[in-house]
Each structure stands twice: as structure tokens, then as C-alpha cells.
Design a protein around this nucleic acid. Structure first.
Length: 419
RNA sequence: GUGGGCGUAGCUCAGCUGGUUAGAGCGUCGGGUUGUGGCCCCGAAGGUCGUGAGUUCGAAUCUCAUCGCUCACCCCA
């Protein structure tokens, strides 16, 4: 039996890696134009970072974390999301003192022990950004715009839908929550078992129920948007205005809830119908109390996360491979040795050069050159070495020319200059 | 954690109601051209039929168990 990767952990194979780099580069470029700086925090944190950050009673903390005690007896966990760790780092290094506002991004693996399925892995990757220190609606809008921009830059064939909602703030949310719980208590007998459970643990989640019967019953339940205080209401309005000014299409979804406890006010999700059951490619929102909850100053924040695997699922499948510029076909062991310094020099000039590692006939080497997509082949055998000339073949036109050894470097350098 | 579907060559898959040495296409390697690629022709390598047990004269095929993958529930990026 061959050894396989751990369940839910996937290898990123050579054929895919260029698409990963493309996605990461596009995101990085967009973030940099907005003035964000990259931060890289450890994959492992003390468990309390997440317990306090995400919320003790969330599914993530209760049953999905990779938690274990290390050799010192301390409880540590593989990060299930990025925000809590970043905030821990910001507090630890007092980064908040250095600028009025922190704009950070990161990308890397996250870990959650869930049952794998389409678009869901136990090790998955996110591209995250966090704005710390501003309550301005512009901060929310900019974060949302960046998520939208990254996705639409990479995905063309799929319908992306941006949904937005406001969850209210500590002032207005409790009023809604109380009314909702009261309402759910009355409706409980008619609801599905899942909803009855949610009614107690996380009442807002009942609105996510897919049960048609529950949906009908809950249509009359109180919505957050009717409880928003004037400040929250104005905030949401401004965020939406800015998005409109940015030309980002969106719909409001009064039922949109987030799974993590720390969200307040703005929450958003970008979904695609092409992803199967996990339709969310990117999501985020405002988390004004989080920095304080983790022991830092009372800094407001907004952030978002893009699921990289899900994004790649939506990217148009295209074979990305690095083209070989030149294939050096050396005939015989003497010629092979003779040619090595030349190969090295060409590579130092930035030309992508390949040759065989074993001795092979010319035919086999031509075949390989063709497979590698080399535009030119440089043929060097005993005859060429004797005459200090090489044969350069253009693979497209099939034209061949003899060039003296001395001319090789400048000529090829010139030939591949534009590429 | 619960349920459905699926495990045959590197990849995509055939293999009918059990019947001898398990097949195809693609890919790889070699030959047809002892120094010239794509197309064509020929050939070769490559398989504990996921694993284990059971039924049977005989199992890739039927039964059970187990592992893995996958989709969905739950939840989330």
C-alpha cells in the first residue's frame, strides 16, 4: 500500500502551481496599489488566541480545530483562520502605534478538521486582508472592493454575486437578538430539529436553514435591518454608496450571517453558483471589538478572506507552462561535456535552456525538444566541435544555420531578448 | 459525526448474466531514418483488479467487512 497524504490535505502539483502563483500575484498587486503591507504570522498559535478570537461556542472552536498539547504541556492549535493570529501579532509588536491605520494582507494555509468535500479541505489556503484602526465606511468598502477586484480579475466564466448585510453593533444587536429569541421560542415546535438547536446556540443562523418549511415560518421573524441604530444604518448606507461609486454590483441579503462571533455591522460574501454546496469564494466583515477582546487597544477593524482553492475552481482552466527557449542537443559524451559551460552561460543570460541528462540519439532529443516547446535547438556533435560551429534549428520554420561558437551567446541573447 | 456514489495500467475508461494467459485509447520508452521533432506505421515496458475474508470446481465480476476517494448534510473560505 502506497503512503498517501493525510485526508483532506492536498498536494499542489507542478501542473497547478503556476495558477497558484498567478492568483497570489494578482492579489498581491491589487493590495499593493491600495497600500497594504504583507504580514506573515506562524501557522501554530496558542489555543487561546482562537478560543478568544473566534468565539468559544463556534463550531470551529468546538469541534474543528487541530489542537494538541506540545511537549511543554501547552495547548497549541493549527490556525483555522488568519485574523486572530494577525491581531495577536499586531498587539504583541504594538504595530498600532506606528501608523494611524494598519492595512495588512497575508496568504497561506489554514486548518480545519471537517469532512472534506468539493471546495472544502482540511488544509486550505486563504488570501486575507485586514484594515485596523478605522471605523470609516470607506474602509469597509475598500476591503470589499479589493475582494471583488481580485476575483473578477481572475474569474471570467462564472457568475460572481456579492451579498451584503449589516449585523448591527453592541448597541442595537441585543434588541434584535432578544426579540428573535422570543419569536423563535414561540415558533420552536414548528421548526426543524436543527433550527431548534440553532435557536439557542446561534439564533441568527436559523435564517440559513435550507428547509422550505422553516423558511416560510421564519419569513415573519424579525430582521436585523429593522433594528439597526441610526449610526449602524448610516454606516451601512455609506458603504453601499461607495460601492456603487466604485461600480461594484451587489445585492443586500438580510439573512446573511457569519459563522465567527466577532463580526459586527458590515458582513459580506461573494458567492458563485459553480462551486457546489460551498458557494462562498470570499467573505468578510467588520470586527470592531476583536482587538480589544484579544487584549489590545480598542481598535476597530474590517477584513476579508478569499478561499484560494475555491477561487482556482472558478478560474478558467488553462495549461500554464514555462516555455523552453532553447534545447541543446549534444551528440555523444564528449560533445555533452564540451557543451556544459555554454548551457550554464546561456542560463545566466536568462535564457531557458534544456538538454538531456542521459546520452541519447538526435532523434530522441529532437522529440524531447518538441515536447518541451523549445523554439530553437542547438545541435552540437563531433563534427561541430571540430569546426567550432554549431547548428541552430528554428523549430517552427525548420530553417537551420551554422553559427560559430563565438557567436552563439550574443546571437542567442539577441534572439530571445524580447521574451 | 451521518448518508449516497465510486475504487481495474501513469491518465481516461471497457470487461455482458462468475469461465483459462485482464483489454483499449492517451502518455512513456524503443524501432522504421546508425545526425533531425510534430503526422504515420511497428514494437516494448507498465496491473497484488483498493485490502481482507466468505460463497464456488473457478471471483475483476456475487456476499460481508475494512480502508480510501468523492458528493451531500452539519458548518465554513
Amino acid at each position: 500500500m502506497t503512503i498517501k497524504a493525510v485526508r483532506g490535505f492536498k498536494d499542489i502539483l507542478p501542473d497547478d502551481s503556476l495558477r497558484w502563483v498567478t492568483a497570489e500575484d494578482v492579489a498581491r498587486g491589487i493590495f499593493e496599489t491600495c497600500g497594504l503591507k504583507e504580514i506573515r504570522t506562524p501557522i501554530l498559535e496558542k489555543t487561546e488566541v482562537f478560543a478568544r478570537g473566534i468565539g468559544e461556542h463556534t463550531d470551529i472552536v468546538e469541534k474543528e480545530m487541530y489542537t494538541f498539547t506540545d511537549r511543554n504541556g501547552e495547548s497549541v492549535t493549527l490556525r483555522p483562520e488568519a485574523t486572530a493570529g494577525i491581531i495577536r501579532a499586531v498587539i504583541e509588536h504594538k504595530l498600532y502605534g506606528k501608523a494611524s491605520m494598519l492595512k495588512l494582507f497575508t496568504m497561506g494555509p489554514m486548518f480545519r478538521h471537517e469532512r472534506p468535500q468539493k471546495g472544502r479541505l482540511r488544509q486550505f489556503h486563504q488570501i486575507n486582508c485586514e484594515y485596523l484602526g478605522s471605523q470609516a465606511p470607506l474602509a469597509d468598502a475598500e476591503v470589499i472592493w479589493m475582494a471583488w477586484k481580485v476575483l473578477t480579475s481572475l474569474v471570467t466564466s462564472s457568475e460572481l454575486l456579492l451579498q451584503i448585510n449589516s449585523l448591527g453593533c453592541p448597541k442595537c444587536r441585543p434588541l434584535h437578538r432578544a426579540d428573535l429569541q422570543l419569536c423563535l421560542k414561540n415558533l420552536a415546535p414548528k421548526l426543524c430539529p436543527d433550527c431548534r438547536r440553532r435557536a439557542k446556540s446561534n439564533p441568527l443562523r436559523v435564517f440559513d436553514c435550507k428547509n422550505e418549511e422553516c423558511k416560510r415560518i421564519l419569513a415573519s421573524a424579525p430582521l436585523v435591518k429593522h433594528y439597526l441604530c441610526p449610526e449602524c444604518s448610516i454606516h451601512l448606507g455609506k458603504v453601499l454608496d461607495i460601492l456603487e461609486a466604485f461600480g461594484v454590483p451587489f445585492v443586500q441579503n438580510p439573512y446573511l450571517v457569519r459563522g465567527l462571533d466577532y463580526y459586527v455591522r458590515t458582513t459580506f460574501e461573494i458567492v458563485s453558483p459553480d462551486l457546489g454546496a460551498q458557494s462562498t469564494v470570499a467573505a468578510g466583515g467588520r470586527y470592531d471589538g476583536l482587538v480589544k477582546a484579544l487584549g489590545g487597544p480598542d481598535l476597530p477593524g474590517v477584513g476579508m478572506a478569499i478561499g484560494v482553492e475555491r477561487l482556482l475552481l472558478l478560474m478558467d482552466i488553462q495549461e500554464c507552462r514555462l516555455e523552453t527557449n532553447l534545447f541543446v542537443a549534444a551528440l555523444g559524451n564528449e560533445a555533452r561535456e564540451e557543451v556544459l559551460p555554454l548551457v550554464k552561460e546561456l542560463r545566466e543570460e536568462g535564457i531557458v535552456v534544456e538538454m538531456t541528462y542521459e546520452e541519447k540519439g538526435l532523434k530522441a532529443q529532437m522529440k524531447q525538444a518538441n515536447r518541451l516547446g523549445a523554439s530553437h535547438v542547438l545541435i552540437i556533435g563531433d563534427k561541430e566541435i571540430e569546426e567550432e560551429k554549431a547548428v541552430l534549428r528554428d523549430m517552427k520554420t525548420k530553417e537551420q544555420q551554422e553559427i560559430s561558437f563565438k557567436e552563439i551567446i550574443p546571437l542567442l541573447k539577441d534572439l530571445f531578448a524580447g521574451e
